[in-house]
Design a protein around this nucleic acid. Structure first.
Lengths: 100, 100
DNA sequence: TCAGCATATCGACGACTGTCAATATTGACG
DNA sequence: CGTCAATATTGACAGTCGTCGATATGCTGA
């Protein structure tokens, strides 16, 4: 194993995107409700609207969330392969059984 | 809200400790060989010895690795509950099945 | 077309982080 | 004891990150 398929950089970016209290709250809220409007995150966290937008962008660029326009609002959701990526990294790090 | 290990701060610190290329390499090496002397990490990564020591401290304070003196050397190992913590956070985030 | 709301981008600033060279600490062994 | 090897700590510096206010963009409804 340990082929060039598992890019260290990608895993680090994935973990860095999650290693923030605001972004972790966002992901947790998305895990609870599959589809969340961006305006709802502003209520949940104690940061301004531009900051929420910034964090959503980081999560989007890390491939953790997906966004979809819905009229005026923009609805966010967890990326479909999020659980698989989490399990894959865990399998690499601690010998956990991959969900596959 | 589940009252268990639900401290957001602890999970963020756990993820922050892993979200670094050098530290991720260290953890990966520890996953491969259960016991690794600190001097071996210096060879693996392209950073100086104080930097390695700094990263090992971060991992130790995050509860990810444990250290044990062995004569002149200090042997590092993955914390025994590392896999459990990883699975627990994943369960919280994506509804994965916890290892329990 | 224009007013209004939701979201994104820009620019700036403080705080934190990773890195190193230099130095200190700790244990082993003559 | 004194010296050597391994590891940790300190102090300093550059770069990154999270945050905000101001502003821009985009969609909707009158």
């Amino acid at each position: 194993m340990a082929a060039m398929g598992d890019d260290i950089g990608a895993e680090v970016r994935f973990l860095q995107a999650l290693a923030d209290p605001v972004r972790l709250s966002i992901v947790r809220q998305l895990a609870a409700c599959a589809q969340v409007c961006a305006c709802d995150f502003t209520e949940c966290c104690t940061v301004s609207q531009p900051t929420i937008s910034h964090h959503l962008r980081v999560l989007r660029e890390a491939g953790i969330v997906t966004s979809e326009r819905r009229g005026t609002n923009i609805v966010y959701a967890l990326a479909p392969d999020f659980a698989r990526r989490w399990a894959a990294i865990g399998a690499n790090l601690a010998g956990l059984v991959a969900v596959a």
